[in-house]
């Protein structure tokens, strides 16, 4: 069973729809017992870091997530919340990864948000099985995780190279939206469910 974590952040529907397209059955839930017993857990998110963390802390889901042992995939804000802290609202995050999430600098023709299809490279790990270097995926974000030792793929926006995805043990996070990235994104979701 796949659990998609329901909390106060958007785009859970997009993830449920994408799982439906690849024939995977998922439940949308905020029940700690259901999440803890799932085979795979997906943590989506479009929204603001401090209010999302506040909600997770108040509901106790923060501890539930930290203690999970099964394959776990955070998407976009979900990945950022898995980091140590975020400059968005000066937020202490889950600390699964050590990185600090920072805002793109902006100005001088540097447009924020980083939105659209960008290539990912340095692909490593089972999430990218069967996908070639420089595959295109869809991003939309204003905050980013600098390139780090946990990065399993990187991307470039203007002069900045950042972590397109992070992996440590059972925990994985992607900055882009696999649920909106066409066939490449569906392959990544399928890899998460089948190869991890």
């Amino acid at each position: 069973m796949i659990a998609v974590i329901r909390y106060n952040a958007g785009n859970v529907l997009s993830v449920m729809n994408a799982l439906g397209r690849i024939g995977a059955e998922a439940v949308l839930t905020d029940d700690p017992a259901v999440i803890a017993s799932a085979d795979h857990v997906i943590f989506p998110g479009v929204g603001e870091a401090s209010s999302a963390m506040g909600y997770l802390a108040a509901s106790g889901l923060d501890e539930v997530i930290r203690n999970l042992k099964q394959p776990f995939l955070g998407i976009c804000l979900g990945m950022q919340l898995m980091c140590g802290s975020s400059d968005e609202g000066s937020t202490e995050c889950l600390g699964i990864f050590g990185e600090r999430v920072t805002l793109f600098p902006g100005g001088r023709g540097f447009k924020i948000p980083h939105v659209g299809w960008n290539t990912i490279s340095g692909l490593s790990g089972p999430l990218y099985r069967g996908l070639p270097e420089d595959s295109y995926v869809y991003f939309v974000h204003s905050y980013y995780v600098p390139l780090s030792a946990d990065a399993s793929a990187s991307a470039d926006y203007d002069s900045i190279r950042f972590s397109a995805s992070l992996s440590a043990g059972n925990f994985h996070g992607v900055q882009f939206h696999p649920e909106k990235s066409g066939e490449v994104g569906e392959r990544i979701l399928r890899n998460f469910l089948e190869a991890i």
Binding site: S14, R21, Y138, S181
Partner: peptide, 8 residues
């Protein structure tokens, strides 16, 4: 559309 289309 949201069910069937995998692009934004």
């Amino acid at each position: 559309a949201a069910r069937r289309i995998s692009i934004p």
